[in-house]
């Protein structure tokens, strides 16, 4: 039995570990677009605390993969899945076969269409390399303009403020994503952000981002009212968009993410999905929905792996998704927790 997992995040990596425990002799291959072994992305804000060697972020040492007979194919982007032949095509034109497939490709930063053309001028933070590049672009005490302000961004913003940088948050309807914040409670949360020493700009739309040459901050954010804001670094934090391009011709049901039942099985018997990439049927909500956060994603990896090896367990969320206001007036998100 060849279990192939696409994605080297917590969902895919944990699934591989559980698969190995439950099927000591099966062949397990993880395919990853990235160059590194599985590392903890939740810790990436630590690059601002001087933790700048990727090796320090590894969850498992290199020997783990050999010991557990887990084959990790890095720098291998899956471009197509042929579910009839049970094959995958990789960007370097190698065709691989699978018996069972787990899609755990996570998501990429979502950027609203009107800002897509400015992506080259914005920094991301979703992998070690770009985190380091962002860090290198930000001078001591420099200004980060955060667009959107989702929960992942707020997590980073806390560290930036702690490490004496200036954070300006351009708030909008994606602020606090994936938490749902209703108009009545929103002002309290916005106040909490200021309590956390973020400068908040609310009610303005970004019109464009510009490159500035010469001395001073390298970027300028221009708003639709003509006002502007200098910035060393501009970052989009509008939530995630599932990475599913390569599945478009696979013949399985997809909405925004890969649709799966509570057992995390897709519309095909031999394909499962886990993590940020999947929308799980929730009888409670009577809809397919995403579940985020380390604990949920890890749990999904486990559930998928168990079901791929003959179990029949259903995913239930491990998190209370409510955004908390602490007694000191700051907020904490359950999505910030990980082990």
């Amino acid at each position: 039995m060849h279990h192939v997992i696409i994605g080297n995040g917590i969902a895919g990596s944990h699934a591989a570990q559980v698969l190995r425990e439950r099927n000591p002799d099966g062949k397990i291959t993880i395919i990853s677009a990235g160059a590194l072994l599985f590392y903890n992305r939740y810790d990436l804000p630590d690059v601002f605390r001087g933790r700048c060697d990727w090796i320090d972020y590894l969850v498992h040492p290199p020997a783990y993969y050999k010991e557990n007979k887990i084959k990790l194919r890095r720098k291998s982007l899956v471009t197509e899945v042929d579910t009839n032949k049970r094959t995958l095509t990789l960007a370097h034109r190698e065709v691989m076969s699978y018996d069972q497939l787990l899609v755990a490709t996570g998501g990429a930063a979502y950027v609203p269409e009107r800002l897509l053309e400015f992506i080259p001028l914005m920094h991301n933070f979703n992998n070690f390399r770009v985190a380091m590049e962002m860090r290198d672009a930000l001078p001591d005490g420099g200004t980060v303009v955060m667009l959107g302000g989702d929960a992942l961004g707020l997590d980073l913003a806390r560290t930036l403020v702690e490490t004496k940088h200036r954070v300006v948050l351009v708030a909008g309807d994606r602020t606090f994503w994936p938490h749902e914040v209703n108009p009545e409670t929103r002002p309290r949360y916005m106040q909490a952000l200021e309590k956390m020493h973020f400068e908040v700009i609310d009610g303005k739309q970004v019109d464009r981002v510009e490159q500035k040459n010469g001395k001073g901050p390298a970027r300028r954010v221009v708003f639709d009212d003509g006002s502007d804001l200098p910035a060393d670094v501009v970052m989009p934090f509008y939530g995630l968009s599932p990475s599913i391009d390569f599945m478009s011709n696979a013949g399985i049901d997809i909405e925004r993410g890969v649709l799966v039942n509570p057992q995390l099985q897709t519309t095909r018997d031999d394909i499962w999905a886990a993590g940020d990439v999947c929308q799980i049927w929730s009888p409670e909500h009577n809809a397919y929905r995403f579940f985020y956060g380390w604990k949920n994603v890890k749990m999904m990896g486990e559930v998928a792996a168990r079901n791929m090896t003959g179990d029949d367990v259903a995913f239930t969320t491990a998190l209370d998704e409510v955004l908390q206001i602490q007694p000191d007036g700051t907020i904490t998100s359950p999505f910030w927790d990980y082990d």
Partner: peptide, 22 residues
């Protein structure tokens, strides 16, 4: 290594599949 060989490669014949984790 070359990421864009001319033709399709059979499973196992691309060098990326032979790297040690380190």
């Amino acid at each position: 290594y070359d990421s864009a060989p001319i033709s399709l490669i059979e499973e196992g014949w691309h060098i990326s599949g032979h790297l040690n984790p380190g």
